[in-house]
Design a protein around this nucleic acid. Structure first.
Lengths: 343, 343
DNA sequence: ATTGTGACTGGAAGCGTTTTCATTTTTCGT
DNA sequence: ACGAAAAATGAAAACGCTTCCAGTCACAAT
């Protein structure tokens, strides 16, 4: 396997010049540059990643920590991050910390800190103060997506605001019997989002003078199947059904729609459903939702990171609110006339 | 940031001994080992990944090449791979080559070959002979999942066999008007699977003496929404509907079920649907399917790889057939009595 | 007492680049 | 055409480890 030395010999140049020619940094005459390129191509030479990282201190690698790669939001973000990173010539090291705290701990310590990533993107991960301090201490830029990350840059959507908007949409249609499906308590730890969206919902309800019935506050694990099971309970048992459901994610909204269909409820005639996300499947279900462009958030995170890496200076820990789009489809409508309003 | 040198000084040992103590290789007295450990812990020392890789020639990193991280099969495999790799102390570098050939080319050349992965897992990727040769040339173990990879180890399910079994299941229920939804031609290039499953379907039909109607051979892009659109065409236009649909993936089967519902067709009374995958959503839809444990396949790939890395010798290019499970739920039943059989 | 054995240990040579620094060559204003 | 500034170059010093090699030491076997 050829080394830079071989290239240098073949090109009749010094190692230093070849290095500069190949990396594009520093001054090299066009002639030398061409020679170096040619020699490298002929020998099929590729730089050794480790050697060059060791010497330069740059890794060209960013770590992405996700709780799962299965759920829509995460895989969408990862796709956005991956594409942008690849274009920029960076590697992406994926840390899937789904299974509990021990693994997560070891990831942070043994992997991330091991000087092998230039930066970290933490998706919907709530790190402890200590963990954040650790990351910041090694002087690597971090950006968080979708989760609070005090001290680091974050990209988030206005969770409480859009939850409010979603609830208000239902209220304006005339609904008063509105249920809310939030994320599971199991996720609360890593992922404060459920609470935030719930707060927005409650605020809108309160402002409209509507009751927030505790039996209509349900939760699921953010998956279609989890929401399906949860919604069956809601729609099946209670003789007094809600006329609308606001689900904290599109996947849960879809699960709710499926459950409704099982009970012969038409959406939106008998039940309005609204979600949050902009899931690809939304169209199939005619789901009214608020689109957060997850891929775009991932891409933005990378751009921000790279800017920081090149600029050198730690960019101030900015907190960017990513814009969302309200998409009205056919899963929401005025409530059925025979439904008695609450209050 | 402390280096091994600092640890050595603090422990009153030589660098060499500390290295041996920390890595566990070579002979070190228990006393020295303990001292080294303690000193390292006190300083919060972690090995530099690059330096140690450069010196030792091992990366502790495997590259995973996937066409997408969004579709069920891929994200499931990645989860399996990720978990197993992390447990073994390896990193996972993700190469998402979704967007066309150029990117893919650059991935193979600039990244994988850049001496930074010890092994490669290629998921459903059909590499050219030249590309495989390249990979094999750098003497890195490769294992392919779900795609043919001549010369390398592969893990696959018996695609044509299970397709046959799925079709036969429908036939045995009494169906003769059977449609098949296969993967898109767009995927054919990377991903020979659609054809393989289709072949199994045709074989079963032929053996049963049934017609394979070309207008009932449809295709979609493996997603729910794609299948939904495709199935609407099938079910909406033709006055003579099929009584059963065999979809080449669960996601497509689900899309088909959704489309059927739109037309007021009951599943399975009016239309039987069967898929392949073992998707989590299958339960919600009562989907009869053939479960291929994608996570398990990912985990197996890693184990195979690591065995090869430790064993040292290139393991013979084995071709493992991963077992599948037929799961009968409620989406398949005998055909409606009024449906005229074909032939 | 002598030698052999094997466990430990430390010095030092890499691993394959990048980058600094001093040096040489080129360019350009006048 | 001359000197100063700019551009291009090469030697060599890092980068932070692993591992070879030779040497020390304790202990058992002769």
């Amino acid at each position: 396997m050829p080394g830079i030395k071989d290239v240098a010999e073949r090109a009749g140049l010094s190692i230093a010049t070849v290095s500069r020619a190949l990396s594009g940094k520093g001054n090299v005459s066009p002639r030398s540059r061409e020679r170096a390129r040619a020699a490298a191509a002929e020998l099929g030479f590729v730089l050794s990643y480790h050697a060059s990282s060791l010497a330069s201190g740059r890794n060209h690698n960013v770590g992405v920590v996700v709780p799962s790669v299965h759920r829509w939001f995460f895989s969408s973000v990862v796709e956005g991050v991956s594409a942008t990173l690849l274009d920029a010539g960076y590697d992406l090291t994926l840390y899937n910390v789904s299974e509990g705290q021990e693994r997560r701990h070891s990831v942070l310590n043994d992997f991330l800190l091991r000087k092998r990533v230039d930066a970290v993107i933490a998706v919907s991960l709530e790190l402890s103060e200590a963990e954040i301090a650790q990351l910041l201490a090694i002087h690597r830029p971090i950006v968080g997506i979708g989760g609070p990350l005090p001290g680091a840059s974050t990209i988030r959507i206005n969770d409480s605001g859009i939850a409010e908007a979603a609830a208000r949409h239902l209220i304006q249609l005339g609904h008063s019997r509105i249920a809310h499906m939030t994320g599971d308590a199991a996720y609360e730890k890593d992922f404060r989002l459920p609470g935030t969206r719930q707060a927005g919902f409650k605020k809108a309800m309160r402002e409209a003078g509507l009751d927030v019935r505790s039996e209509w506050q349900l939760s699921a694990d953010f998956t279609i199947q989890g929401a399906y099971a949860s919604a069956r309970q809601l729609l099946g048992s209670s003789p007094e059904r809600p006329t609308a459901v606001f689900a904290a994610s599109d996947e849960m909204a879809i699960g709710t729609i499926l459950a409704a269909r099982d009970f012969g409820l038409r959406v939106p005639q008998d039940l309005s459903v609204i979600g949050i996300d902009g899931h690809e499947l939304g169209e199939v279900f005619g789901l009214t939702t608020i689109d957060q462009d997850a891929r775009g958030q991932g891409a933005l995170a990378v751009r921000r990171l790279l800017a920081g890496l090149d600029g050198g200076s730690d960019p101030a820990a900015t907190d960017t609110e990513y814009p969302t789009r309200f998409i009205i489809r056919s899963s929401t409508a005025v409530p059925p006339v025979d439904a008695a309003p609450i209050r």
